[in-house]
Amino acid sequence: MSLTIKTVGRGRRVVAGSLIALTALTLTACQSGTDASSRPSSADAAAQSQPNTAQQSHPAKPSGNSAGTANAGQANASAMAASDRCTTTDMSLRLGRTDIGAGNIRVPLIFTNKGKKACSLRGFPGVSLTQRDGSAIGKPAGREGGAGGSVRLQPGRSAHAVLHTVNDGVSDTPCWKNSQNVSVYPPGSKESMTTSSGGLRVCGGIFTVTTVKAGSLG
């Protein structure tokens, strides 16, 4: 009986020791796996440290459509303004009644729409006095007053600008020769119109023209 008991006790001690060793190995393996999975690899660390070059190397570019649309709109507006402007073929030209007062001489320069559709005038006409042969007398008229607004002329309607000079003797500056004609470039036009000046003479070195306004003034 004594031999059997010793053998059984030794077997239990062997089995118990084996279980303890196996448990220790299992815990060690689990700890090693946990540590390995929780630490990033060197390749992952390198990838995380690199900037996102795919986004940085392709910055957004502004679209050119807005600039192109603006330029096209301006070009269309300019074309429409040019087509709406009164031309020399649309109008007749004459001088109105001379107004003399306080040493000043003012003469309306009258444009009348003789066309079949409405047109517009805006700004200062270019005006020169000429002799019968077309040679210029003195200098072209300077501008007097503000630029003013656009004048819409329906067929048969008129607009005017005012020529201004002074009487002889108001200034020591000598008068120009008497003129026979007045040559006029309507605002925005590259073609001139001519009408009789009625012998208008510039004195005192003063010769100006206002911007175009609605109406004929006689």
Rank of each mutant, 00 (worst) to 15 (best):
S2G: 13
L3W: 04
L3N: 11
V8D: 01
G9V: 10
R12Q: 10
V14Q: 11
V15G: 10
A16H: 08
A16K: 12
S18Q: 11
S18D: 09
S18P: 08
L19T: 04
I20C: 07
A21V: 15
A21W: 01
T23S: 08
T23F: 09
L25W: 09
T26E: 03
A29D: 08
C30A: 14
C30L: 13
T34A: 12
A36P: 03
A36D: 12
S38P: 02
R39S: 11
P40I: 07
S41E: 04
S41H: 07
S41L: 06
D44L: 13
Q48T: 10
S49W: 04
Q50Y: 11
N52F: 01
N52C: 03
H58G: 10
K61F: 01
K61I: 12
P62F: 11
S63D: 07
S63F: 09
S66F: 09
A67C: 01
G68F: 06
T69S: 05
A70R: 13
A77S: 15
M80P: 00
S83E: 06
R85Q: 15
R85M: 15
T87G: 13
T88S: 11
D90M: 14
D90V: 08
M91I: 03
S92Y: 00
L95G: 04
T98C: 02
D99F: 11
A102S: 12
G103F: 03
N104G: 04
R106G: 05
R106P: 00
P108I: 09
L109Y: 02
I110D: 00
N113V: 05
N113Q: 10
K114A: 11
K114G: 12
K114P: 01
G115Q: 01
K116D: 14
K116P: 10
K117Q: 15
S120R: 15
L121F: 07
G123E: 07
F124V: 02
F124R: 02
F124Y: 15
P125A: 10
S128W: 10
L129R: 02
T130M: 09
S135I: 10
A136W: 01
I137V: 13
I137K: 10
G138H: 06
R143W: 01
E144H: 12
E144T: 08
E144C: 04
G145Q: 03
G145D: 00
G146Q: 09
G146R: 05
A147F: 05
G148L: 10
V151F: 02
V151W: 00
L153A: 04
P155M: 02
S158Q: 04
H160F: 06
V162T: 15
T165I: 02
T165A: 00
G169Q: 09
V170M: 15
V170P: 00
S171I: 09
P174R: 03
C175H: 01
W176N: 13
W176G: 12
K177L: 11
Q180K: 12
Q180G: 11
S183G: 01
S183D: 15
P186M: 14
P187L: 15
G188I: 07
S189I: 13
S189E: 15
K190C: 04
S192W: 11
T194V: 15
T195S: 10
S196N: 12
S196Q: 07
R201T: 13
C203V: 14
F207N: 08
F207R: 11
T208S: 13
V209D: 05
V209T: 12
V212R: 04
K213T: 03
A214W: 00
S216W: 05
L217E: 05
L217I: 06
G218M: 05
G218Q: 11
